[in-house]
């Protein structure tokens, strides 16, 4: 029984015979930020989604604190999912709901349905939501509708929603790819400091190698569904990037 997340021989093929993930075995410490880098279509998103089972793995194990999530179904799966927060590339906020409702939707795995329906959330959940709104720098936005926010603001709400779950693990799928460079840095900064403060380990899919090196303690490079680099940012060299992304001319 080890704390944190472990992947054992994880594989996924959407079409039989064409694996997107090939036999991934990785261990993640229960703290710190890990970046997964790699070209588009190399299975980074699939890998992240296999962890919280938004995508069904074809084989292997996903062990969270020693419990294999792959065979879970129904209620057990939902109990496991509520411990895993997720931040999305396109924020995936419920556009027609208020910021507060979006945050509280992070508690849907915990509160009874009638409470969620009537918006009668426990006072501590609401207090926590306000606390997180302050933390992500949107103290006055609780009653704004999500579709009235800018991209950067939406992603801040997305981060707050994920943290509302009090997750044991946070997954981020290209959280900065839809943002302008400056907002991307701000969001990365926020994501890493907040999760550090709350001691939540993070796994981030990210396109931007510079951001990955700057904010992440560990970098995993993927190429064609397999891990080809795994180490601290300092160890990541041009030769590794060639291995991950292929070619060479683009690096100058």
């Amino acid at each position: 029984m080890s704390a944190g997340l472990s992947l054992r021989g994880l594989s996924k093929a959407y079409v039989p015979g064409k694996p997107v993930l090939r036999d991934i075995t990785l261990d993640f410490a229960p703290e710190g930020v890990t970046a997964i880098i790699g070209p588009s279509g190399t299975g980074k998103s699939t890998l992240i989604r296999c962890i919280n089972r938004l995508v069904e793995p074809s084989g292997g194990q996903v062990l969270l604190d020693g419990q294999d999530l792959v065979p879970l179904r129904g209620r057990e799966l939902r109990l496991a999912r509520r411990r895993i927060g997720m931040v999305f590339q396109e924020y995936n906020l419920v556009e027609r709901l208020s910021v507060m409702e979006n945050l509280l939707s992070g508690r849907l795995g915990y509160v009874p349905l009638w409470r969620a329906w009537l918006r009668k959330y426990p006072a501590e959940d609401i207090a926590r939501a306000f606390e997180l709104l302050d933390a992500v720098g949107l103290p006055d936005h609780a009653t704004r509708r999500a579709d009235a926010l800018s991209g950067g603001q939406r992603q801040r709400v997305g981060i707050a929603r994920a943290l509302m779950q009090r997750p044991a693990l946070l997954l981020a799928d290209e959280p900065t790819s839809s943002l302008d460079p400056r907002t991307a840095v701000e969001v990365m900064e926020l994501l890493t400091t907040l999760t550090q403060r709350e001691q939540v380990p993070v796994i981030i899919n990210i396109h931007n190698v510079e951001l990955a090196k700057r904010y992440c303690g560990r970098i995993i490079g993927m190429h064609q569904g397999a891990v080809v680099f795994d180490g601290p940012p300092e160890a990541l060299e041009a030769s590794h990037l060639q291995l991950i992304y292929g070619g060479e001319g683009w690096q100058e």
């Binding site: 919280n52 938004l54 209620r75 939902r78 109990l79 496991a80 999912r81 509520r82 411990r83 895993i84 927060g85 997720m86 999305f88 995936n92 906020l93 419920v94 556009e95 939707s105 992070g106 508690r107 849907l108 795995g109 915990y110 349905l113 969620a116 997305g158 929603r161 779950q165």
Partner: peptide, 14 residues
């Protein structure tokens, strides 16, 4: 949006 709500651990009714 549905995927995001599902990812929070919400049940079908949620």
């Amino acid at each position: 949006q549905v995927e995001a709500v599902r990812a929070t651990g919400a049940g079908p009714a949620g």
